[in-house]
Design a protein around this nucleic acid. Structure first.
Lengths: 323, 323
DNA sequence: CTGAAAGCGCTTACAG
DNA sequence: CTGAAAGCGCTTACAG
């Protein structure tokens, strides 16, 4: 029960060499049965736990694979469902997940990942890795995958945001909207930009519909802001860049008694109950596929194959709940 | 750009000893400035990244603290908000989080945690650690904290479930309910049991109100099941053990046109919009406090203090949204 | 089947 | 200011 029990202690107590102890502990076949059981007994008695660092120093890899998950500020409900599914799929492969926050850039994070010889990296949303960070990972043969972000040079999986905003546009058009407001958060993420651009371009190609955009700072203020927007009686369509934002919008519409069409983005689980029409991206499909792609990337590396870039673009669809 | 760059490579290229390289890399003050800059230049040029395992082997601790988060099957929305806040608070302390799944018991997980010398363990919900697992952690001086579970012998933080179900009962009583159904999931977690028991006992102490309970397998089926329950015209109160369950209930009530009172549990964010009366437990408070308790536990160990058991019980409150 | 020894990459007194 | 050396705990040929 002493401080730090090592194989040396076990060896001494069992009257064998440390090599033998190590063999027993690693299930090497060439050990006499009596020796084996004795060593195991003593190890248990001493509450021995191997030192992962020492083991790794010589074996050059962890006993368990660990995937690093890089997250921006996590205010996003969708990301949570996503993590859940990534985790669900990855655990089936016996991979652990380590979550890193990238608020202050991920420079030191990447450093830490390499230092700890983690198995792979998954980056959720923006910002992407810098060129330098990518290089560091490549040199150390740590595969990485962008989720919900696309970069022609790298492996990624994402939903087609331009397509999604086109669907939202079609929905509002089908409801005869003539004056539409798009509402997103002030983070200029790639997804947001794609949605703004995609929507605007599509609407303009149709003609005779007015569209403007508004960036707000937080989901909380969405209710109040929508309420004041609704003072403009000619406004008849609202496109929110996330369902969470749209909930505040639905609430505001209810209070105001106005008749405007609302469409959200994501289709997180409460939206069904909120009766919100929205652009559905399945966090389950995205998360599961992302996990599988990482596994594939890791496998490629294990097998020493030329590492190929894997890219997947998923198609969102519109869920019409007559909102 | 060779395979594995070590301080030896740097030392050779710089024409100094490895000790000097190590000193530079660890910002030791006693190095000539010219040597320092030269070593740094070469290290960068070679894309050197220290080997965490080797470093840890000699220093006996990670450069960054990592808290292990043990999760049961994560189907729970509340847990997600919780993780978010735990993570938020912990990152402020420069702690990383590593998520482990405990579907198949956490035996091997605990082993892995000790092997990797992680900093602390946070267990969310049931099942708790076994006696043996606790001992292993204690021997290796790795503090652990139960979140949403209480055990008189250990450190924990939880909301008072008995109190919470009493609040729910009061709510339904105030709305004159005479026949109440409690609906939970089939996992017999400590929280569930506390709620069932607390509610039943309290109601029975009042008298003249009928109460029964029902365990269902998944949130999805809650809508259908409630719909059929509502065929019983005398049923006038529903107590769901989570808001997620209650959403299906609200939906079913709407379809059926029945007039029953509904109260949920958790107050996750969409409940405000769903107009659901519920027992509020703040995932933010629980998560933040939990994180702070871990930090405190770790600090105690660092300072070599006698490790005290920390226990916190939070009081839930009822949010009346007239449902 | 097993012991002795080398070596994984790094840090840190120790002796200049 | 800096080099040489010991040692962290383990694995794995190598030689019995």
């Amino acid at each position: 029960m002493g401080e730090k029990v090592t194989i040396k202690d076990i060896a001494a107590k069992a009257g064998v060499g440390i090599g033998t102890v190590s063999r027993v502990l690693n299930n090497s076949p060439n050990v006499k049965e009596s020796t084996r059981s004795e060593v195991i007994r003593i190890a248990r008695e001493l509450n021995y736990v191997p030192n992962g660092a020492a083991r790794m120093l010589v074996k050059r890899s962890h006993s368990q694979a660990t995937v690093a998950l890089l997250l921006p500020v996590v205010e996003n409900q969708f990301f949570f469902e996503l993590i859940k599914h990534i985790h669900g799929r990855l655990k089936a492969e016996q991979f652990n997940i380590m979550i890193f926050n990238t608020d202050h850039g991920h420079d030191s994070v990447v450093h830490h990942i390499v230092e700890q010889r983690l198995t792979a990296v998954l980056t959720l949303g923006d910002p992407p890795l810098t060129q330098a960070e990518q290089e560091v990972l490549e040199i150390h043969k740590i595969p990485f995958l962008y989720v919900d972000y696309h970069d022609p040079e790298s492996s990624y999986i994402t939903y087609d945001s331009v397509k999604g905003s086109t669907l939202a546009a079609d929905y509002l058009i089908s409801r005869n909207c003539k004056k539409i407001m798009m509402i997103g958060l002030t983070d200029r993420s790639q997804q947001q930009v794609d949605r703004f651009e995609g929507f605007r371009r599509y609407i303009e190609s149709i003609g005779d519909i007015q569209v403007s955009e508004l960036c707000i700072n937080s989901e909380e203020e969405c209710y109040d802001i929508t309420l004041s927007l609704l003072n403009d009686k000619s406004l008849d369509g609202l496109f929110y860049f996330s369902d969470t934002l749209a909930y505040g919008g639905i609430q505001a519409r209810l209070e105001s008694g106005r008749d405007v069409s609302i469409v959200g983005y994501d289709d997180i689980f409460p939206s069904k109950f909120m009766k919100l029409s929205t652009v559905r991206q399945s966090s389950e499909i995205l998360g599961t596929r992302a996990a599988e792609m990482v596994v594939e990337l890791v496998r490629q590396r294990e097998e020493g194959e030329e590492s190929r870039v894997l890219q997947t673009v998923l198609e969102p669809e519109l869920v019409d709940r007559n909102s």
